[in-house]
């Protein structure tokens, strides 16, 4: 691990400096995580009187219940749709901004602020817009002959949470795409233009490949966002319904743990999720170490 040539010689001081961070980490991060792992191997009886060691039974049961498999599927659909919608929209906006010179600052200011809006508030706002009785969009859709009701229709509910989650993520992706576009040397595009490549051809043969490190990085960040930070979006809009159509994994951990009180299963789900986060973090870090080559 990289460090300084010259250092201070104190013995006790570094421990003192580290103490607050380590104390908080141990008490509120490591210890609960260890509890989740321990709990995932235990099962309580219906009255909470007796707890017994059951080995991997909670995990085996997890992957045999249709609700959990459904939740895996829902999470996949939700993550892919949200990431795709947020990435494509923000790339279009970033490409447009790349052509601007004087107005770039104003457009950027008008596009980045949703980053600051809480996912829960984003959920409430779109929930209001899509409200089946008084919302604006169901009114427009009804005029087009579509009967919108996310409280009853599974795909309507999925569209609602995808739109709300993607809306909040556009500004983040936009900023990183703009930075990525600015780092592409203008000489490359000029050379291609002299060789007779039009704007569309230049986009697919030069801009898009050179943008791939940014795109990959954003893909990982977006997947992490949709898997964990969208908890509030779900809770503020559909609460996982109708009929578990929007029950993403992280929301199910909470429902099963706090409302269903199925601690063993909830703990096993926590451990599975931790595994997913660790895998994603490693992917992200390896990528930061050495960028995608092209």
């Amino acid at each position: 691990m990289q460090t300084k040539r010259t250092i201070f010689k104190n013995r006790g001081l570094p421990y003192l400096l580290l103490f607050p961070q380590l104390a908080v980490t141990l008490v509120f991060f490591i210890w609960p995580a260890a509890q989740a792992v321990r709990q995932s191997f235990l099962r309580e009886d219906a009255f909470g009187l007796k707890t017994s060691f059951v080995g991997l039974a909670n995990y085996r049961q997890l992957f045999n219940t249709p609700e959990y498999l459904n939740s895996l599927h829902v999470t996949l659909v939700f993550s892919v749709s949200t990431a795709a919608l947020a990435l494509v929209t923000s790339l279009l906006l970033a490409l447009s901004l790349d052509r601007m010179i004087r107005s770039a600052r104003i457009y950027t200011a008008l596009l980045v602020w949703p980053y600051a809006v809480a996912p829960a508030i984003a959920g409430v706002l779109w929930w209001f817009i899509f409200n089946p009785t008084i919302g604006v969009l169901p009114y427009v859709l009804a005029a087009l002959g579509y009967d919108w009701n996310h409280a009853l229709d599974k795909s309507d509910a999925m569209v609602l949470v995808v739109v709300a989650a993607a809306w909040k993520q556009i500004s983040y992706n936009f900023l990183f795409f703009v930075a990525g576009l600015q780092s592409i040397p203008a000489s490359m595009r000029e050379a291609a233009a002299i060789d007779g490549a039009g704007p569309v051809k230049r986009f697919f043969t030069i801009t898009l490949p050179l943008l791939s490190p940014t795109t990959f990085f954003l893909l990982v960040v977006n997947v992490v966002y949709t898997m964990f930070d969208t908890f509030a979006v779900i809770d503020a809009t559909t609460e996982g319904g109708p009929a578990q159509a929007t029950m993403i994994l992280v929301y199910k951990v909470y429902r099963d743990g706090f409302i269903g009180l199925n601690l063993g299963s909830s703990a096993a789900q926590s451990v599975v999720l931790m595994g997913i986060v660790i895998a994603l973090t490693i992917v992200q870090f390896r990528f930061v170490e050495r960028r995608v080559t092209y």
Binding site: M1, Q21, L22, T25, L26, V27, F28, F29, I30, W31, P32, A33, Q35, A36, Q39, F228, D229, F231, V250, V253, Y254, G257, F258, L263, S266, A267, S270, L273, M274, V277, I278, T281
Partner: peptide, 22 residues
């Protein structure tokens, strides 16, 4: 350093039940 690094991997939503208990 590694103990601190681990917190990066454990968002509060993932370990919500045991953290609440603590």
């Amino acid at each position: 350093f590694w103990v601190i690094f681990l917190t990066l991997m454990l968002p509060v939503e993932v370990r919500i039940v045991p953290t609440f208990k603590v």
